[in-house]
C-alpha cells in the first residue's frame, strides 16, 4: 500500500531495527522508510518503543550501557553508528524529549548555545537566530523582556517550548518531536502545529505523539507502534478512514484501547 520511494527521496531508512534494554525488548524487527520533507507520525500507547526509536536515531545509546541496538538506521544513506563524528550527526538531528529540560543558562544562552558551538560569534547574528527560534516555538512574546533570566526556572510549558526553540537553533534537517505538547495549552499547541507545517519545507519531522488527532492533523504518513512492534505504516488518511491491514490499528485509532 506504500510504494518504495526513490532512494534520493529517503531521509531515514530503518532496516530490521531491534532495541533492547538488558534483557527487555523495547522494539523488535522494525523496517520502514521516512521520506524527505514529510511529517512522519508515530502513534501508540505508552511503552511501545517510540521514544527508544528516537534515542537510537540520535545515538543516545552511547550514554546508556544497558541499551543495545541491532539492525540498521540509515540517515541520508549512512548508517548512524558509522558516523565518525557523532556530534556532527546530533547537530543535524534536533530532538525534543517529553520531559523538557531548560539548561541552567539564561533563556538567550539556551537558544544561542548551539549556534555558538557551531561557530556563530557575532551578537547580531545570534540575536536574529534567538528571536526567530523563540518566535517559531511560540515563546518569544512571553520571554522577550527577560531573556537574561534562567531557562531552568521557567514553567514546565515554557521549558517545553524553550526546548523546541533550542532544537530549531541547531538548524537540523531532521527534527524529532516526542510528545512536545504534553505541558502546553491547546491554543499554543495549535500555534506550534502551524509552525511545524511550515517547517516541513525545510526539514523532515518525526512526530511521536499520544494524541491520535494530533497525528491526523499534522502527519503525512503515520506508523502505529504497539508493545515494541511496528504494527502498521500507512498514509495518515488511510489509517483514519479504516483502510488498515491490521485490526489492532483501527481499534487503537478509534479509541477501543490505549
Amino acid at each position: 500500500m506504500v510504494g518504495t520511494p526513490a532512494a534520493a527521496d529517503v531521509k531515514l531508512d530503518v532496516k530490521n531495527l531491534a532495541i533492547h534494554y538488558g534483557d527487555t525488548c523495547a522494539l523488535r524487527d522494525t523496517s520502514f522508510q521516512i521520506r524527505k520533507n514529510e511529517i512522519f507520525g508515530i502513534i501508540g500507547p505508552a511503552n511501545s518503543g517510540k521514544t527508544s526509536f528516537l534515542r537510537a536515531i540520535n545515538r543516545m545509546d552511547m550514554f546508556d550501557d544497558n541499551m543495545r541496538i541491532d539492525g540498521e538506521i540509515l540517515l541520508d544513506g549512512t548508517e548512524v553508528r558509522n558516523w565518525r563524528n557523532v556530534y556532527a550527526l546530533r547537530r543535524r538531528v534536533g530532538v525534543v524529549f517529553p520531559l523538557p529540560v531548560g539548561l541552567p543558562l539564561s533563556i538567550y544562552d539556551n537558544v544561542a548555545l548551539s549556534p555558538r558551538l557551531a561557530g556563530t560569534r557575532k551578537k547580531a547574528d545570534l540575536d536574529v537566530i534567538v528571536e526567530r527560534c523563540l518566535t517559531r516555538a511560540a515563546l518569544w512574546d512571553e520571554v522577550k523582556d527577560r531573556l537574561n533570566s534562567l531557562g531552568s526556572l521557567l514553567s514546565g510549558g515554557q521549558q517545553q517550548r524553550l526546548t523546541i526553540a533550542r532544537a530549531l537553533s541547531q538548524q537540523p534537517d531532521l527534527l524529532l518531536l516526542d510528545e512536545f505538547s504534553i505541558a502546553v495549552d491547546p491554543v499554543t499547541t495549535m500555534r506550534i502545529e502551524d509552525v511545524l507545517k511550515e517547517l516541513r519545507e525545510e526539514m523532515t519531522i518525526i512526530l511521536v505523539t499520544n494524541l491520535v488527532q494530533q497525528a491526523r492533523r499534522l502527519a503525512d504518513r503515520t506508523a502505529f507502534f504497539l508493545t515494541g512492534e511496528c504494527v502498521e505504516v500507512a498514509e495518515t488518511e488511510d489509517l483514519f478512514t479504516g483502510a488498515v491491514s491490521d485490526q489492532r490499528t483501527s481499534d487503537y485509532v478509534e479509541g477501543r484501547f490505549g
Binding site: A8, D76, T78, N85
Partner: peptide
C-alpha cells in the same frame, strides 16, 4: 545525495579538542 552525509561527517576542531 548520499555524499551529503559524508561531507558533514568530518572530525572537526571540537571533536579533536574533546579527545
Amino acid at each position: 545525495m548520499a555524499h551529503n552525509a559524508g561531507a558533514l561527517d568530518r572530525r572537526d576542531t571540537a571533536w579533536y579538542v574533546d579527545k
